[in-house]
């Protein structure tokens, strides 16, 4: 039978199932949607939660950022999305841009050969310790922050909010979204937590401001 039939059949089944015409309730949204904390406490909460996830957290200013990145990256070959400002990068480090000799973006294998990635971020939720990447030019496409084993993520302080609803307000759903809460992890073997499976095993977060 054709797909048209399948769709029509399923919708007919659902129509029949709903023959008692249940009402769609009004959704009560009495949960917290705006923070009541001052911003310093919110930033401190984010730092605490990220540390709890075994991410390394640093506080830097625009002046000290390049020095910190030099220290964190060492001599690893580092890919940097096009939108990351040059002023972030330490002198002497030649970043790999996301384009290969033939002019297309780096292949998965080419990315796999690199050691680290530096990205910005869109918004961070302190209460859950979650950084949102929204595929903006300074965050790059999703594979960039995934394949290299070391992710250095810069979080400007004015992008830190306390609550999840506050974070979602700053997200553009049309572009791909990656929510990151610490390095990848598994507890599949006897529930013993192992940090670092397929995603970057090292996550450094630089709070900038």
């Amino acid at each position: 039978m054709s797909q048209t039939d399948a769709k029509a059949t399923i919708l007919a089944r659902i129509g029949h199932a709903l023959r008692d015409e249940p009402a769609a309730p009004e959704v009560p949204r009495n949960y917290r949607r705006t923070s009541s904390l001052n911003h310093d406490d919110v930033v401190e909460m984010l730092e605490d939660r990220l540390t709890d996830y075994k991410a390394n957290v640093y506080r830097e200013t625009t002046e000290t950022l390049p020095g910190r990145l030099r220290e964190l990256l060492g001599d690893a070959s580092t890919v940097v999305p096009d939108g990351v400002p040059d002023t972030w990068l330490p002198e002497g480090i030649e970043p790999v841009r996301d384009v290969n000799d033939s002019g297309s973006v780096l292949s998965a294998r080419e990315l796999d050969a690199l050691g680290a990635v530096v990205t910005a971020s869109t918004v961070s939720c302190a209460e859950t310790g979650t950084i949102f990447l929204n595929s903006r030019p300074d965050e790059g496409r999703r594979a960039l922050s995934l394949v290299p084993d070391h992710h250095v993520c810069v979080v400007p302080l004015d992008t830190v909010v306390e609550l999840i609803p506050e974070a979602f307000e700053r997200i553009n759903h049309a572009d791909p979204i990656t929510m990151i809460s610490g390095p990848s992890a598994t507890s599949d073997i006897e529930l013993e937590r192992v940090e670092g499976v397929h995603g970057p095993r090292r996550l450094d977060v630089v709070l900038l401001g």
Partner: peptide, 29 residues
């Protein structure tokens, strides 16, 4: 639901990764 699920499931404040995508994005995925 991103608040209800991880706390109920793994007992974490948030799971390490959540991915969201809409259809096909050029040069990404």
């Amino acid at each position: 639901f991103t608040q209800l699920l991880p706390r109920s499931s793994t007992g974490e404040r948030m799971n390490p990764y959540t991915s969201m995508w809409t259809g096909v994005t050029e040069d990404d995925g």
